[in-house]
Design a protein around this nucleic acid. Structure first.
Lengths: 191, 191
DNA sequence: TGTAAACTGCAAACATCGTTCGCAGTTGCG
DNA sequence: CGCAACTGCGAACGATGTTTGCAGTTTACA
């Protein structure tokens, strides 16, 4: 449901209650159960709907690693656009056709790679994980709050805070990390 | 509360309700609010209590990278022991003294590294993320369920499944991935 | 010791949640 | 027209986190 996604984008996953979605649709909460079997169903649909934003998949031209990196970048973008997707990705639920299509597209890109399916499977999982990891880093930012905590027992932390803040280092770590990880996973030699 | 952690270990985070914890303590649900201000408070305490299992921190002998890898391994072990910790780590809540102590210990290990604090901060975040990533991989396993989905539209996926399963590749990818990531983040040259 | 103040435990109640039930109103079809 | 199937949804159920009010107990001080 587009309405549910709009609510989640605006106010987070917790705000996606059946009553809230129904209200946005100007109907009653019970009516939703004519189309959905449960709230979990709704969440699955949301995840799959948003997975469609990964399209169109890049054509596997040139290096397969380049193509995979481009796909991972798309994944990261989607996760930045919809931060609540992270919460969904951890639920053990049925994966939808869009997610499966993306999976298939990854396999297609990896077709020229000589590696067992298990390795490719793991590689896709890692790619997904790294994409989420970096998306969260940007989303959450430096929102660490040492609320009311005395930092004096932590000398190194204290010293670090007294250092003048410098420019963020961040050359494109995302791409480098992903490349070395995938290469390590899919090619016989080490990284 | 130890009781809450026991419940979470046994039945997952969702089972940690105020009433369930109170029942385990043979008391009433409302009584808990004499010691906790909310359920979120309880979850924060659980996370910090479990972070204490990261002790004792290794002495920074030899290479700092070796030591960090050892600490990341401890993190992964904790996440495997308490899978619900993953759900907690995504909440933007106050971090407790144990987590801060671990953070401080990481900084201590990184003391000989010539890098701005921001880079070290990111490195710790990445180390944490990778540890969780690998812990989840082992916990969740291959529990993907293409429940009732027709896979014929996904030719590469179909082909992959027809391949005979081979032994898991998994040389110690965890360590290699972590090393290259941390090195890339903390040293001037590329990985 | 006696009394007032403070603290503690907790049953009951409230708001909100996901979900189910049953009943009207509508539609489709012979 | 009549009947069956479908649709929308108010009301209610069970569970959740949290608040409230009231007893029972401990503490502090004259």
């Amino acid at each position: 449901m587009t309405a549910a996604i709009a609510i989640a984008d605006a106010s987070g996953l917790a705000a996606v209650s059946m009553r809230a979605v129904a209200a946005r649709l100007e109907t009653g909460a019970a009516s939703l159960y004519r189309y959905l079997s449960s709230r979990d169903d709704l969440l699955d649909l949301m995840a799959d709907r948003v997975a469609a934003e990964l399209r169109p998949y890049p054509e596997p031209d040139g290096d397969w690693l380049d193509t995979l990196v481009r796909m991972a970048r798309a994944q990261r973008a989607v996760h930045e656009r919809h931060p609540w997707l992270f919460e969904l990705s951890q639920r053990a639920s049925a994966i939808g056709p869009e997610a499966l299509a993306f999976f298939d597209a990854c396999l297609k890109v990896m077709a020229p790679v000589e590696a067992p399916f298990a390795a490719k499977f793991e590689a896709i999982g890692m790619m997904n994980g790294v994409a989420i990891l970096f998306a969260r880093k940007r989303t959450a930012g430096e929102s660490l709050t040492f609320v009311g905590l005395d930092v004096t027992p932590y000398p190194y932390l204290l010293a670090a805070f007294s250092e003048p803040v410098s420019a963020p280092p961040a050359t494109d770590l995302f791409e480098r990390a992903l490349r070395s990880l995938l290469r390590g996973l899919l090619t016989p030699d080490g990284a």
